[in-house]
Amino acid sequence: MRHAAGLVHRGATFSLAIPMDRTGPQSGRTARVNPQHVMLRHGGDMLADGDSALHGMRSTDDAVYMPLQSSTQWDALCHIFFDGRAYNDRGPESVTSAGAHFNSITTIADRAVGRGVLLDLPRLLGVPWLEPGHAIQDTDVERCLAAQGLEVRPGDFVLVRTGHLARRREEPGWGDYVAGSAPGLGLSAAVWLAEQRVAAVASDTWGTEVLPSECAEISHPVHVLLMVNVGIRIGEIWDLDALAEDCARDGVHEFLLTCQPLTITGSVGSPVNPIAVK
């Protein structure tokens, strides 16, 4: 933590969250829907009160309904099970209709801050984005770190830019961004990150790992490897483009990262507004 704080030199800040609204990215391919923002009291309500609305204190109020993993978000360790077990050998009974009794994302409410490291794979390869199905392997990660003059340390938050979100911005609508083919982490890269004992890994795709999967018999094997077996949390739908541009300009790809989840008791995921500070 102390080292991460020392990475702040310019005071430049970057929000890594996409807008949370009804325009995307959810498209009906899963049970998740886009955030629904509604006004409980707005200016029209005040104006309906006539002249009295123009005197004294008045207020507006609003509410939102959203699946907690419908936008820029964290996966909790209780989000993924394999052969009936989640991280730390927790069974299905550990997540009830009241929420998670163990491994909720709230366990990192006071710890989701530290050194962030950006791996900009498209810039390394000289392309605007990686193509869907492109698997990032351990050798790619090592090559990217060497090109950027970095090393990954235990406890780091590793951010993997594939350019998939940038590609969606160049095309109409979100297409198959949710649950469709995407570039992402391959199994060897996941093993490499686990060996470095990173705190978490996040990316600009819907699932962080490559889709279609390298392991056809297991759904989302990188999630299983990192979350169930090792306890490394995964972040998805992070907007890394502006940060990547700044990192390319000044040649500095490490920064202080704050990315606390909401403290919703028993939640298996959480929206987040990650902030990188350089």
Rank of each mutant, 00 (worst) to 15 (best):
L121T: 00
R22E: 11
S52C: 10
D89Q: 11
P19V: 05
D140C: 04
I80K: 08
Q148C: 06
S27T: 15
M57L: 13
T72Q: 02
V95D: 04
N88P: 00
R90G: 06
L145H: 02
G43P: 05
Q148L: 09
V95G: 03
W129G: 00
H134Q: 08
E142L: 05
G56C: 02
A17K: 15
P132S: 10
R58V: 09
G28E: 02
M20L: 13
M46N: 10
L121G: 01
E151Y: 09
G114T: 09
M46L: 15
L118C: 01
G50L: 05
T60Q: 10
M20A: 15
N34K: 04
I136A: 02
G99I: 03
M66N: 06
E142K: 02
S104D: 14
P92N: 03
L121D: 04
M66F: 12
L145G: 02
R85H: 06
L40I: 08
P132L: 08
T23H: 12
V117N: 00
T96P: 01
P25K: 03
R41H: 03
T30W: 07
G28R: 08
F81D: 12
A112S: 15
G126L: 10
V95C: 07
G116P: 04
G44L: 13
Q26H: 05
R143I: 08
S104Y: 02
E142C: 00
V33W: 07
F102Q: 11
A53T: 08
V141I: 10
R41M: 01
D62V: 03
G114Y: 02
I105P: 06
D140F: 04
L145N: 05
L150T: 05
H37R: 12
S97W: 13
L130C: 07
A63K: 01
R32A: 10
T96C: 01
A100D: 07
D49Y: 08
I18C: 07
G43M: 12
V127K: 05
R90S: 13
Q137I: 03
W74A: 12
R85W: 12
D75P: 01
T23K: 10
D49W: 12
A63S: 13
S59A: 13
L77Q: 04
R58F: 03
Y87I: 04
T139C: 09
A53Y: 01
L130D: 03
A17F: 10
R123N: 08
C144T: 15
L130N: 03
A63Q: 11
M46K: 14
P67W: 06
G50H: 02
L150R: 14
Q73K: 14
R111P: 00
A146F: 05
V127S: 01
D83W: 08
M20N: 10
E142W: 04
G50Q: 06
N34G: 06
V117W: 01
G56N: 00
R90F: 10
L145C: 13
P92K: 07
F102R: 15
R41Y: 03
L118S: 01
R58L: 03
L124W: 06
D62M: 12
A86D: 08
R85K: 12
G149W: 08
G91Y: 13
S52D: 07
L47G: 00
A63L: 04
D21L: 05
